[in-house]
Design a protein around this nucleic acid. Structure first.
Length: 433
RNA sequence: GCCCGGGUGGUGUAGUCCGGCCUAACAUGGGGGCCUGUCGAGCCCUCGCCUCGGGUUCAAAUCCCGGCCCGGGCGCCA
């Protein structure tokens, strides 16, 4: 037999009518009507019907009606344009081979006649991901990451990888996961922040990193994970406004690439996307406080926004927006205060509704100020030696941000739970799969 | 971590308030059978379940206490 080239189900069209094709995939469903049997073969790109009348092949129909759902099969057959078939084409099999029979019953229903809870789905994630709707999320995620990487590269940012095993807390504040590093204690890094800044001192000028961050907080919400992916940039010779422009253009680029290249997957997820208009609205922290107060929510200047406060705010401000000029007190030590008004800082958060997507700032690049601010936060400058030394020998002014990739995807696809946006999520209770 | 609500076949639900009528119901699924155009196929037969530990009681899926886990809200954050 001549060597055949495997086709995806989605590639079958008018040109194949009457021709032989080779397909690989999973048995989605079988409907056995006695004299004819229908099977749905699913691969990662779609589903096609395999139709086998008894008289065409008594051997194949026998195998077909016995095969359990989700078994892996190889099919060689003739394509027939058929209006009665779902998708308009069907394949009449000449060869039907079960490559690997699936066990039964399945831990969850891939066809989704019966829903499954997220927890059940995550326990059997490999099966959950066979659902086109679920797999589509990760096809969009792939596009999102590709777009972010392409955009930043085109903008002159150099991609770097910084260590995830570190000796001290990077920023204080958040809890870290301790790990054992030979005879010493070490931690999983909560953020590439300090390393990005050191690289500004190294003269790279524009860097980005897409990588994991680890937070040992015991939060248990639909928008927090203990292991997340962060898209981080740092840029020299610019200020917070400069990097906000990069950020909004990146978000816009991701949306337009997804709209352009992921139509099929958006369709599977049943999401309609509109590319957000840039520039995004900037509202100051003070304005946000006023809006929240006006709506009757209890808040005083200097507070961080509570979840209900952010929900209130998002009722007043549409879509994506920046909250800028935060009180210096509630931002990390590396955030640059305004010269003429040091109680507020050159900081911003990017919001999508009430969800915080990113946060950034112009950084403190003055050694003495930085040392002082570390002390003011109750941290010990001695444990930041590797970081601080980079500020003593020609550190340029710089700014940057960190964008939560999982949250961005969650917001693009309007997912209810961030765990849906992560292929194998890690939360307070979940350490497997 | 805190508050509230939950945990029943492989999956998703009903039953729990008011203990005994539960030998636990329904859908989907698994096994077997019938059927030549299904597309949530249909029909017949069949299989399979009370989260764990302790307590109350003649009697616990049902009431009480604790653990573990889940959902919603919050804190904290990206």
């Amino acid at each position: 037999m001549t060597e055949m080239i495997r086709k995806y189900t989605s590639e079958i069209g008018d040109d194949d009518d009457g021709k032989q094709v080779l397909l690989y995939g999973w048995i989605h469903e079988v409907r056995d009507l006695g004299g004819v049997a229908f099977a749905l073969l699913r691969d990662r790109e779609g589903i096609i019907q395999i139709t086998c009348p008894k008289k065409r092949s008594p051997e194949i129909i026998k195998k077909l009606r016995k095969v359990r759902r989700e078994s892996v099969v190889k099919v060689i057959g003739e394509v027939k344009k058929e209006p009665k078939a779902p998708g308009g084409f069907e394949v009449l099999p000449d060869e039907f081979e079960v490559l690997n029979e699936a066990d039964a019953p399945l831990p969850l229903d891939v066809v989704e006649k019966v829903p499954a809870e997220l927890d059940t789905r995550l326990d059997a994630r490999f099966l959950d991901l066979r659902k086109p709707r679920v797999q589509a999320i990760f096809r969009v995620r792939h596009q999102m990451i590709q777009s972010a990487r392409a955009f930043l590269s085109e903008e002159g940012f150099i991609e770097v990888q910084t260590p995830k095993i570190v000796s001290t807390a990077t920023e204080g504040g958040t809890e870290l996961f301790p790990i054992s590093y030979f005879e010493r204690e070490a931690f999983l890094n909560q953020s590439p922040q300090l390393y990005k800044q050191v690289l500004m001192g190294a003269g790279l000028e524009k860097v980005f990193e897409i990588g994991p961050i680890f937070r040992a907080e015991e939060h248990n919400t639909v928008r927090h994970l203990n292991e997340a992916i962060s898209i981080d940039i740092e840029q020299s010779f610019t200020d917070h406004e400069g990097v906000m422009k990069v950020l909004e253009r990146l978000v816009s680029r991701v949306y337009s690439d997804v709209v352009e290249n992921c139509e099929k997957y958006l369709d599977w997820i049943e999401v309609e996307l509109e590319v957000p208009e840039i520039p995004f609205q900037r509202i100051t922290y003070d304005e946000a406080i006023e809006i929240i107060k006006r709506k009757g929510e209890e808040i005083v200047w200097g507070d961080d926004f509570s979840t209900p406060a952010l929900k209130t705010l998002s009722e007043e401000v549409d879509g994506h927006y920046f909250i800028v000029d935060w009180p210096t007190e509630i931002k990390p030590f590396y955030a640059m205060p305004y010269e003429n008004e040091p109680e507020i800082s050159k900081t911003f958060d990017l919001m999508a509704g009430s969800l915080e997507l990113a946060s950034g700032a112009q950084r403190v690049h003055i050694y003495d100020l930085l040392v002082r601010k570390i002390g003011e936060k109750g941290l010990n400058p001695d444990s930041f030696e590797f970081y601080l030394s980079a500020f003593r020998y020609g550190m340029p002014p710089h700014a940057g941000w960190g964008l939560g990739a999982d949250r961005l995807l969650m917001s693009i696809l309007k997912l209810k739970n961030i765990r849906e946006a992560v292929i194998f999520p890690r939360d307070r209770n979940r350490l497997t799969p």
